[in-house]
Design a protein around this nucleic acid. Structure first.
Lengths: 201, 201
DNA sequence: GTCTATAATACGATAGAC
DNA sequence: GTCTATCGTATTATAGAC
């Protein structure tokens, strides 16, 4: 774990974001969290916006490691189980997961007022939805692609909203997991019933 | 519309929040938006936090007027249509609606870091979900209550996430409306199929 | 009730020594 | 690479006149 300074700072920034949000991030607090001076933070990063940008990249990468990456690595496993696991991974009370979920929610919320952030967000989401669409295809190969994409969009939307509610303690973790599981079941049932429009092509 | 100063300020604050978010709200900008001095804002409100608190109440009240209130007033109409209309009301490109949607999303996002806001949020949401559960009951009286509540929770979750995506221009308005409509159809189909567990009670 | 200052401070960012 | 010290400014909040 001989992480360099830059990475240490990014990790510190991720923790600060989890506590106070993107817009509550203070450079001085990041420095304190990393145990260094503010000047050193500015030596490694151009400015506050730069810190934010890199931190969000960092978080996004980390999220891929524990969500999107999984289904791929286990392509030959039960896709139904893979789907459920990858969507439920977001609901865990581990600091690392909490941090990522919080930051992702903040990214969402911030993007409403910050056009610069939207591009990165759009890209990350496309990848995520693409992976989900693939997994859904492995479960129901007969379901037409547009229907699977729409299902994936709805599932990610549900996940994000449930995650926000969990993080603001409006929903206990177990309840959120249940609702997510139900949502998956509902979407899969829908896909199963939906006869492929192009089945005779 | 002989609104008093306080209300004028709250309206101004709502507009500012729609532009820059809760955490982007500057007291000076609220004052300018209301056409008065910052000192007068402080005469009417204790401090920045007080302005925020009252503005969110104001917005929450206004939202109830154009969503939750509607289904009630038109109880005897087609409940299926009422449901769809009340959930799609959030997706309109009118300034008032945009303001409320934006502020509601901000309320959500802010609550993750602000325990004080959670209570108001939880209350508003309970009312909202309750109304939806009722409407679902008028559509499918045979569906058991827990299933309807869960469907209502998922529908509100979907609405919030789709709203965020629309506001950050990740999803065009029409597409968001379509996804919302689909989500309603899916939930209703699910409720219709779900045989009432307590049908023989 | 409303204004024009202005105080007080929090915060981002940099200079310059080591 | 890293620090201490500090500058400049944006922002909250108040004092005091009308």
């Amino acid at each position: 774990m001989g992480a360099d300074r830059r990475t240490e700072i990014l990790r510190a920034a991720a923790r600060v974001i989890a506590r106070h949000g993107v817009r509550g991030l203070r450079v001085a607090e990041v420095a304190a969290e990393a145990g260094i001076s503010t000047a050193l933070v500015y030596y490694h990063f151009k400015d506050r916006a730069g810190i934010l940008h890199r931190t969000l990249e960092f978080i996004s990468d980390r999220a891929e490691r524990y969500t999107a990456a999984h289904p791929r690595r286990e392509r030959d496993g039960d896709p139904r189980r893979d789907l459920e696991r990858s969507l439920l991974l977001e609901f865990q009370d581990r600091p690392e997961v909490r941090e990522n979920s919080t930051a992702w929610g903040e990214l969402q919320a911030t993007a409403v007022f910050d056009p610069e952030l939207r591009e990165a967000l759009a890209e990350a989401r496309l990848i995520w939805i693409g992976e989900l669409t693939d997994t859904l295809g492995r479960i129901h190969p007969a379901a037409p692609e547009p229907a699977r994409t729409v299902a994936a969009e709805r599932l990610t939307a549900t996940l994000e909203a449930l995650s926000t509610r969990w993080l603001s303690e409006l929903l206990p973790l177990g309840h959120a997991r249940e609702l997510m599981r139900d949502a998956i079941a509902v979407e899969l049932a829908q896909l199963a019933r939906q006869p492929a429009v192009t089945v005779f092509d």
